[in-house]
Design a protein around this nucleic acid. Structure first.
Lengths: 66, 66
DNA sequence: TACAAATGTCAAACATATTTGACATTTTAT
DNA sequence: ATAAAATGTCAAATATGTTTGACATTTGTA
């Protein structure tokens, strides 16, 4: 699964730490998700998408291997 | 977080085992998610929503406590 | 009623997500 | 060029998701 968090952050001009604060997780959690090191829970995905004003499918994209 | 899996299954008239097969997890995983015992990963939520032809937000709903 | 299908649930094992703290590297602004 | 801010990353600990197998309960149907 890939994601557009970096791009959406750039559009809103917020840092990883900002996003982490807004969704209530650690900065490392955002960093690691953004780097595709692991897949967030659905609660976290919903919160992140909401911050960006997008639906989950627009931020997190399924790939063949998923 | 709540979800509408039971309702969506009823609409499509498929069993928990059917849904589990289609998304590639065990039946217990579907049962436990449906019973709000835990929150699925985003990959799984995306797959489930796709089976139902809905976006993730229509199937999984954030609540106050999340 | 009785049988089959579907669902609920438990425990144990394993896999993955998340946190914290710390430090290195890169980017941005002065 | 320098300092500050932002990002990358590591290790260890904890929390949560997922699987398997098994069995109990409920629901639908003959």
């Amino acid at each position: 699964m890939k994601n557009n968090i970096r791009i959406e952050r750039a559009i809103k001009n917020i840092t990883q730490a900002d996003l982490a604060d807004q969704v209530g997780v650690s900065r490392q959690t955002i960093n690691t998700i953004e780097s595709n090191k692991y897949v967030p829970s659905t609660v976290l995905a919903l919160k992140i998408a909401r911050i960006f004003g997008k639906c989950v499918e627009e931020v997190f994209i399924l790939e063949e291997e998923d």
